[in-house]
Amino acid sequence: MTIRHHLSDDTLLAYANGTLASTLSVVAATHLAICPKCRNQLEFIFAAGAAELEVLEPDFGSGLDLSIIDEITQLPQEASSIKPENLTLQTTDEKQVPKPLRNILPCELDDIPWKRLVPGISHYPLKGFANPDGKGALRLLKISPGMVMVEHSHSGQELTLILRGSYIDEVGRFAQGDLADLDDNLHHQPVADTDQDCICLIATDSPLKFKGFFSRLLQPLIGI
């Protein structure tokens, strides 16, 4: 798996600060689990924050309480799971989805009870993961080979992680592991471009805007 499309720095910064919408955070964490490059970028952002820490005036409050040190050092420590002498061959299981997503799926990806939206396109909403403001959604989407998604744009942010297959749109080709970090005002129309179903995890922080009259009519019905 070669990942070509990544999380943008502004999304990583929001994730690092805990200000990214919950729905978007699930997709970000799922991508981070399989993308060493984005984890390194995230580390860079934390390092920039830690560097900024240096310019703050230290706050001694009402003095340092050394007794908590004695208390804390009584606690057991966690053993490092990775021993230096353990040069083990670890296999990465690409059949499974990464934990941040797996934790909220009711079953394996292969057993998802898909709901058909229109012929060739089904979805599975991951409810119970709403943002505090009630806006936005998290869902799985399955696009059959050659199917064209309805052209749409976003009023907010949309993160799409490709779990299986691939699609192509105005931005480029997105294959397994790739993440499309799309801003508002981008109109796009993904097409599944191989003979395999394209399964993606999509999070938004506000409703999508459909372009055509017909698809706008459909929107309340399909509930995207």
Binding site: G49, P98, K99, P100, R102, N103
Partner: peptide, 25 residues
């Protein structure tokens, strides 16, 4: 930072887990 975020959000923010079999090291 993580301790602060987990407290404010009152939910654990999803994080990648290096022990996960799907984790790509």
């Amino acid at each position: 930072k993580n301790a602060r975020i987990d407290r404010i959000r009152k939910e654990t923010r999803p994080k990648p887990d290096p022990e996960d079999p799907s984790f790509v090291p």
